[in-house]
């Protein structure tokens, strides 16, 4: 690979393919011939047929592409990055977040703020946890960095609100305890790879 390709800043152009569109007519006679050939060739009727075919398909086969949005919704990708969810442990129902603070640290728009304390068993737990969705850019770093798969992106994408700043508290994002059996694992950023089990090796006792 030569250096030339790296120096070419016109990234858009060198992949262009030029179509053969012929030369535009210059003289009056050429223009006239073009009009006549186009008129006689029936290209216009091809256009008419195409839209008629679509109309027949729409009416007969019900081949409609309209989604009546508030009433019906398109399925979204499981990796879609929308409003965050806080997951719970499936067995005990405790929340997964261990208050490590990595998400707060990595968040590039600085919109997570949290506070932690020791509970009665001297374990760390989150006491305050807020995400300002007015600032969040849904980059997914927090979900990727979380060691416990606690903070993930959920499927809630309708987040219009009356004001720019919109805060979600820990409890808002946490899976309700009675819906624990409906909790979905997240496939996107930070998720465990499908062959995670094979990749695990025993920690040696001594180096």
């Amino acid at each position: 690979m030569s250096l030339e390709q790296f120096k070419n800043r016109n990234v858009g152009i060198h992949t262009y393919k030029t179509l053969d569109v012929g030369t535009p007519p210059n003289t009056g006679m050429e223009k006239f011939t073009q009009v006549v050939t186009r008129a006689v060739k029936g290209e216009l009727f091809v256009g008419l047929w195409v839209v008629m075919r679509e109309m027949i398909n729409t009416l007969v086969k019900g081949d409609v592409h309209t989604v009546k949005y508030p009433f019906e919704k398109m399925p979204i990708s499981p990796r879609y990055r929308a409003i965050h969810d806080m997951l719970r442990l499936l067995e005990s129902g405790n929340y997964r977040c261990i208050g490590c603070g990595l998400c707060e640290k990595i968040c590039i728009s600085n919109c997570i703020s949290m506070d932690t304390r020791y509970d009665e068993e001297q374990r760390k737990e989150v006491s305050e946890y807020t995400i300002n969705f007015g600032r969040c850019i849904f980059c997914g770093y927090c979900a990727e960095v979380c060691p416990e798969l606690a903070i993930v992106h959920g499927p809630r994408y309708e987040n219009a609100s009356e004001q720019r700043a919109g805060y979600s508290l820990f409890e808002d994002m946490l899976t309700p305890i009675d819906k624990l059996n409906l909790q979905q694992e997240y496939d996107g950023f930070g998720a465990v790879s499908p062959n995670a089990d094979e990749n695990i090796t025993q920690t040696p006792l001594a180096y």
């Binding site: 839209v51 679509e54 109309m55 729409t58 009416l59 081949d63 409609v64 309209t66 009546k68």
Partner: peptide, 13 residues
Amino acid sequence: KVLAFMQRRLGPM
């Protein structure tokens, strides 16, 4: 309606 059907839409509904 006709324009909508020809563009695979539903039109006023």
